[in-house]
Design a binder for these strands. Structure first.
Lengths: 206, 206
DNA sequence: AGAATGAGCGAACAGTTGTAAGCTAAACGG
DNA sequence: CCGTTTAGCTTACAACTGTTCGCTCATTCT
């Protein structure tokens, strides 16, 4: 086996070990280099042949998670074409991702407000892809001015993301409710933005 | 000085030490019992005279944070009575809280998705107060059915909370933008829910 | 006054952590 | 084919962690 090939192999072993140790009660911050190395089947010091420190590993994990997120977007687009209901399809696709890859989603969720500024901005960047893409769609499909399309997209992504977080702690019997609730919320937003978008001034007590 | 009084005093010293060590790069999980005890001016072992372990301290901190949140709600209600604009006043009040008590807000933000189930549900409970109160208001002021009032309140709290999180990493020059963006989002929701609330069926491609 | 309570302390222990130094052996490049 | 490179190892160290034990001594209760 080629040397580079073998190196890539144990690099993946490290990454996989790290992902597999993430759970509801174990965040990336609470992983230890030694534990990861142990599960990857290498000596602790060999870790340094692949990453300068745990932070570098963490950024790699966030990148991989972001990659999966982008694949998810593609998948959602395909489904929408064959399905029609944009909001319902998007929310359902996202929920399936959260349930099926809860460790990955949890990583993003936690590091978004974690203790490392580098992690936070890495996660923020990945989420911005989501927002930008959705905003572009809204600009095309609706008469929304650019700035407001972005604000609308941000609100929608925020709500969907938050529902994903709820789902992590909810029993699976709640998934259907969470999904439909979020769909309703997004429809409100879309409807409100469409009919209310061009009136930034005060009106009424709300 | 009475014994109970002195005990309460060092208990507060511990709590204050813990709060003061929280920061952008230091979460509760990364605090150590010894460090907290050091800053509180007691021996590490004396910590156990007040808390069974760090988790118990953490739950206390979350409770205190929740208390501050409820005080905030009262303050917001007073302001609204003298001001009129419900949404604007609420968002501005909340943002002031986040800026002025960033460590407290960060605690809630992080532990909401942290590694301890007990912490997560404690934070969720505090936030539910917010939601319940807002939902009650919406039921009174609008024609929204109960279930939808709750969904609307949840969406609003989610958006405001998320904006608070954004503010933590944003330069203060961005505060005004974040505030007005959120106000717009909440108005969309209110408007959409009002005119769209009783149509749960599919319609259009959105 | 005398006994009991309990907050606080110091010393000590067993674990864990990250990381440095130096070696081995296999794959590589000339 | 021989020298170089390098992934991986073992050993070692210093720093920290949470927690137990037994003691002191001021406050409290009787």
């Amino acid at each position: 086996m080629s040397r580079a090939e073998q190196k890539e192999r144990t690099r993946r072993a490290i990454i996989n070990a790290a992902f597999s140790q993430l759970s509801a009660d174990k965040s990336f911050a609470s992983l230890s280099l030694r534990e990861v190395a142990r599960e990857a089947g290498i000596a602790p010091t060999s870790f340094y042949r692949h990453f300068a420190d745990m932070d570098e590993l963490g950024l790699t994990l966030v990148d991989e998670a972001g990659l999966m997120l982008r694949q998810l977007m593609r998948q959602a687009r395909q489904r929408i074409e064959k399905n029609g209901s944009v909001i319902r399809t998007s929310v359902e696709t996202f929920m399936e991702f959260v349930i099926g890859n809860s460790n990955v989603f949890r990583l993003l969720l936690r590091e978004r407000s974690g203790t490392s500024a580098a992690f936070r901005s890495a996660v923020a960047r990945e989420i911005q892809h989501f927002v930008a893409e959705l905003a572009e769609y809204l600009r095309k499909e609706t008469t929304c001015p650019d700035e407001l399309a972005r604000a609308q997209a941000e609100a929608m992504v925020t709500l969907v993301f938050h529902t994903g977080a709820d789902a992590l702690d909810a029993p699976s019997s709640q998934y259907a409710y969470l999904t439909s609730r979020t769909i309703t919320q997004l429809r409100w937003l879309a409807h409100g933005a469409a009919s209310y978008g061009r009136k930034p001034k005060e009106q009424g007590t709300l």
